[in-house]
Amino acid sequence: MNTIEVNNLTKKFGKFTAVDKVSFTVKQGEIFGFLGANGAGKSTTIRMLIGILEPTFGDALVGGFSIKNEPDLVKKNIGYMSQKFSLYNDLTVAENIRFFAGVYGLDGKKYEERKKWVLKVANLEHMENVITGSLPGGIKQRLALGTAVIHEPKIVFLDEPTSGVDPISRRNFWDLINELSEGGTTILVTTHYLDEAEFCNDIILINAGKLIAQGNAKALKSNYIKNPILEIESERVVDSLEILEKEKWVGETSIFGNYIHVILNDNKINEGNIIHLLTEENGIKVQRVEKIIPTLEDVFIHLIEKDSKKNVQ
């Protein structure tokens, strides 16, 4: 069953098209990853899906409600947490929970039960009278997610929820996301951490407002890059890159720290050719050349470069 169905969703700001005829579907209980560079149109899409920005045209059904015609019903049935920390820093933990419970009309036993749950997931039991602003970032993020789903929505939108949070907190946060998903909640999450994308059941990638790839992590890696990828570890990374880029059989190159990733155009080329080129012809010492399975990063760089070239033409 699809809980989110997006059809040709488009948003124009004046002449600029921020989101261009994007369509996709999200199944119930899925963790759906929404990837793209900053300014690619992720936030604009989410803002339309949660009913606070009107689409220029196209529509989407969220939990069965049209974002165009029934934004108020959409709002009632979703949870949303944004990259900007959205709790009141000058209220205590308990006061924040009380407030959002009040906004969603929770009271009595239900309220007590949910409050307990939020405190538990945020690891803030016995700390409910602490001023929220004084909490560490990771805890705040979990509290924000807890309060965002205090009314137990079936669909949750997370807009870069882990940006600016340390790796361990990010891990804890993803445990919480998995927990929600196992409980049947559908989660749409935007991120630019590609390791996080690996946790998602399904991923879409947008660039310049257009959807350019879709599938799970495995499918993306095997469907979009057919040519072999070599990882090269050499002494002079930048020089090596320049030399490699001159060769006809080199498709795309990118630098990952001390390594270079090269997508080959020609299947006949192997590790030996690379070593020959760099060491014998140019005197650069090569530590290692290895054929690798592409990472999501390789896939996305490949796709975005391909798309950008197309846009220029």
């Binding site: 009913g51 606070i52 959205s86 906004v103």
Partner: peptide
């Protein structure tokens, strides 16, 4: 300024 209005906007509050 603090971005909390965003959370209010997505809530059912009119």
């Amino acid at each position: 300024e603090r971005g909390t209005i965003e959370q209010i906007n997505v809530s059912p509050l009119s």
